[in-house]
Amino acid sequence: MSIFQIRQTKSGAVLWTGAAADERTALDAMAREAGYPDFSALPDTVRANGIEAAKLDLIS
């Protein structure tokens, strides 16, 4: 598992941060936490502003 951060590209707002196996799983987890079954179920208005998933490389 890796840590991902999901941001809205236009505003830079962080929408979700958490552990996921890959980018697709992270996007689905963010959507589920917002009450949707998966990323594809998010309203077009949310996805229209652009969403990016970044893998955070945390070094201890």
Score class of each variant (00 low, 15 high):
Met1Ser: 13
Met1Phe: 06
Ser2Phe: 11
Ser2Gln: 09
Ser2Met: 03
Ser2Arg: 06
Phe4Asn: 00
Phe4Cys: 02
Arg7Tyr: 06
Gln8Lys: 04
Lys10Leu: 12
Lys10Thr: 14
Lys10His: 09
Ser11Asn: 05
Ala13Leu: 04
Ala13Glu: 13
Val14Leu: 10
Val14Asn: 12
Val14Ser: 12
Leu15Cys: 08
Thr17Trp: 03
Gly18Asp: 04
Gly18Ala: 07
Ala19His: 08
Ala21Trp: 11
Ala21Met: 14
Ala21Val: 11
Glu23Ser: 12
Arg24Asp: 10
Asp28Ile: 12
Asp28Gln: 07
Ala29Val: 00
Met30Lys: 10
Met30Gly: 05
Met30Trp: 12
Ala31Tyr: 02
Ala31Phe: 06
Arg32Asp: 02
Arg32Val: 14
Glu33Ala: 15
Glu33Arg: 15
Glu33Ile: 01
Glu33Gly: 10
Ala34Ile: 00
Gly35Tyr: 09
Pro37Gln: 13
Phe39Tyr: 15
Ser40Thr: 14
Leu42Met: 13
Pro43Phe: 10
Thr45Ser: 15
Thr45Tyr: 04
Val46Gly: 00
Val46Gln: 04
Ala48Arg: 10
Ala48Val: 01
Ala48Glu: 14
Asn49Cys: 06
Gly50Gln: 09
Ile51Thr: 07
Glu52Leu: 09
Glu52Phe: 00
Ala54Pro: 00
Ala54Asn: 13
Ala54Cys: 08
Lys55Trp: 08
Asp57Met: 07
Leu58Ala: 12
Ile59Ala: 11
Ile59Glu: 14
Ser60Ile: 13
